[in-house]
């Protein structure tokens, strides 16, 4: 916004020069970080990817390692399981996150501060701690089971060591990030637009669906994609709370790499994981760029 005020007052030529200077300085500032990223992340990733296509110095590219991956039922079921856990966790996360974020944004209650602190609390607890704490909480003889027993409710099926155990742990772990992203998005929605809608007689559902959600799309996409990447690669929580089989890809890769010492197969697993994440990364980047471009034009 400050820039747009400057643009209005500055003559066109000076403006362009300033932008070019600023551009060069900006590039110089990001160059070391960008270089490091290429050196430490992109190059090794490309090498690994090429390694899966050209196995052991073969001259011709071959997709054999991928064929093996997709022909192996264990690999495929692990991949599908990872996608399934990620999608379900994401749906629960967004539902809880959106509800809480809307409450935090619009409620006048004096509990808002307390709820915000509780919602951000998981940020400060390491995953391994929460995993063991959750065993005690949702485990077969944990607090939930004993409380239900006291209340006379029987037939409690513990989620511990089931996929639902991993999902509960992952939701708990990722709530803070979701809430922070969504509250930041909600903060940009002006009260006046909502009041204007209310003045012309819009109900809460109409305000939500036609005023709030359209302006929040970007935050939701960002929250969804960042969480997707985090959950897809999560290790500790599903490792301790989830079932022995199927496994999340991260655990599967670790097993293949450090137990079976089969680095070629682990590389293929990593490449498949990477490609799934790349897809989400593209959606995220497209969304951020589209918005930046639109804002740029508007400014």
């Amino acid at each position: 916004m400050v820039a747009s005020i400057g643009e209005i007052s500055a003559p066109a030529g000076r403006r362009r020069a300033a932008r070019q200077n600023g551009g060069a300085l900006g590039l110089a500032l990001v160059a070391p970080a960008f270089g490091l990223m290429i050196l430490l992340i992109l190059l090794p990733a490309c090498r690994s990817l090429l390694g899966t296509i050209f196995p052991d110095g073969a001259a011709l590219p071959s997709l054999k390692s991928y064929q093996t991956f997709f022909a192996d039922t264990r690999s495929v079921s692990n991949l599908l399981f990872t996608i399934q856990v990620t999608v379900v966790t994401l749906a629960i996360l967004l539902t809880i996150g959106l509800t809480l974020a809307l409450y935090l944004r619009f409620s006048q209650s004096r509990f808002v501060g307390a709820i915000q602190i509780i919602a951000l609390f998981p940020l400060f607890v390491p995953g391994i701690v929460i995993s063991f704490a959750l065993i005690r909480f949702i485990g077969p003889t944990g607090l939930v089971a004993t409380t239900l027993h006291v209340l006379g409710i029987s037939g409690y099926q513990t989620p511990y060591l089931h996929p639902s155990g991993a999902i509960i742990g992952l939701v708990w772990e990722n709530i803070p990030l979701t809430i922070m992203l969504l509250t930041a998005g909600l903060a940009q929605i002006s009260n006046s637009s909502i009041e204007a809608a209310r003045d012309v007689g819009a109900g809460w559902f109409r305000i939500l669906s036609q005023i709030i959600l359209p302006q929040l799309t970007r935050s939701i996409v960002v929250a969804a994609s960042l969480n997707f990447l985090g959950i897809f690669g999560s290790f500790t929580v599903p490792y301790i709370l989830g079932p022995a089989a199927p496994q999340m890809m991260s655990i599967f890769m670790q097993n293949t790499f450090s137990e079976r010492h089969d680095s070629g197969v682990a590389e293929t697993q990593a490449a498949v994981t990477f490609l799934v994440c790349l897809l989400v990364g593209v959606i995220y980047t497209a969304c951020v760029f589209r918005d930046t471009a639109r804002n740029g034009k508007a400014g």
Partner: peptide, 10 residues
């Protein structure tokens, strides 16, 4: 993992 813990998602 290949022969014993192979159960499908429960």
């Amino acid at each position: 993992y290949s022969n014993v813990a192979t159960h499908t998602v429960r």
